[in-house]
Computed example of a mutant assay.
Amino acid sequence: MSIVFDAVTVTAEGPEGTSVLLDGVNCTLQAPRTAIIGENGSGKSTMARAISGLVQPSAGHITVDGLDTVTDVRALRRRAGFIFANPGAQTIMPTVREDVALTLRGRGLSRREVSERVEAALAAHHLTELAERSCQSLSSGQAQRLALCAVLVGEPSLILADEPTSLLDLRHSELIAARLLAPAAEQVVLVTHDLDLVRRCDEAVMVSGGRLVRQGPPDEVVTAYVDSVRG
């Protein structure tokens, strides 16, 4: 799978006028696991959201395996799953089991097939004992495991995760990281401040001021990022 940014600019209107969130980004992301790093406000989350079609370019184009993120957004959403830093933003149904099952609705599966896939997904994410719990009663770590489970049960080709471990303790961070980096999808794009997690990816890109300033092996990009922060 190939993600291509072609002179992509993203802007947003605010009280003080127009802000440039991405500024003429050109790159191709093809590695199985890519980490996007940068300081707060650098544009890294905007980059991930633009790939998913949640944010539209003001100029330029993004394609995901040939699908345009603006004109082909419906087809893209069937192939890609997005995981937010705040898992509450994507929880819809009352209980854990119902929320996971929602992903499979409208896919032409029998009740038995849905049930089998849901139960297998719950077990894989250590959520079986919480299956009948209210989604609103979960801890932040449990809620993030649910969010990831609900995405992966749909077997997406592409997973986009925006700081999925930022609010978690060490145990839950490790659980989420292990599931994200396992070969459950053709491609994962991960926005994170966790530099150890970045080093476990196949490639990293560094964003600063809305521009892509570095792309390459994770160790090299992390070193460049740390040097730039420490000045």
Rank of each mutant, 00 (worst) to 15 (best):
S137A: 14
S137P: 09
S139Q: 13
S140Y: 14
S140Q: 15
G141L: 05
G141K: 09
Q144S: 08
R145H: 13
A147F: 04
A147V: 05
A147E: 00
A147M: 03
C149I: 04
V151E: 00
V151I: 10
V151M: 04
V151S: 00
L152A: 05
L152C: 05
V153T: 10
G154W: 07
G154V: 08
E155W: 12
E155R: 14
P156M: 07
S157L: 13
I159K: 02
L160D: 00
A161V: 06
A161Q: 02
A161C: 09
A161D: 03
D162Y: 03
D162C: 07
E163Q: 08
P164S: 10
P164V: 06
L167D: 04
L168T: 03
L168G: 00
L170G: 10
R171C: 10
R171A: 15
H172L: 06
S173G: 13
S173P: 07
L175H: 14
L175G: 09
A177G: 10
R179I: 12
L181K: 10
A182G: 11
P183Y: 11
A184S: 15
A185I: 05
A185Q: 05
A185S: 11
Q187W: 08
Q187R: 11
L190W: 05
V191L: 04
T192C: 02
T192R: 04
T192G: 01
H193C: 05
D194S: 11
L197Y: 07
V198C: 00
R200P: 02
D202P: 02
D202F: 04
A204V: 07
A204I: 06
M206I: 11
V207W: 03
V207D: 00
V207L: 08
S208D: 14
G209I: 13
G209H: 14
G210K: 05
G210P: 03
R211W: 10
V213L: 06
V213K: 06
Q215W: 12
Q215P: 10
G216N: 13
P218N: 10
P218Q: 09
D219T: 15
E220F: 14
V221C: 02
T223W: 12
A224E: 03
Y225E: 01
V226T: 14
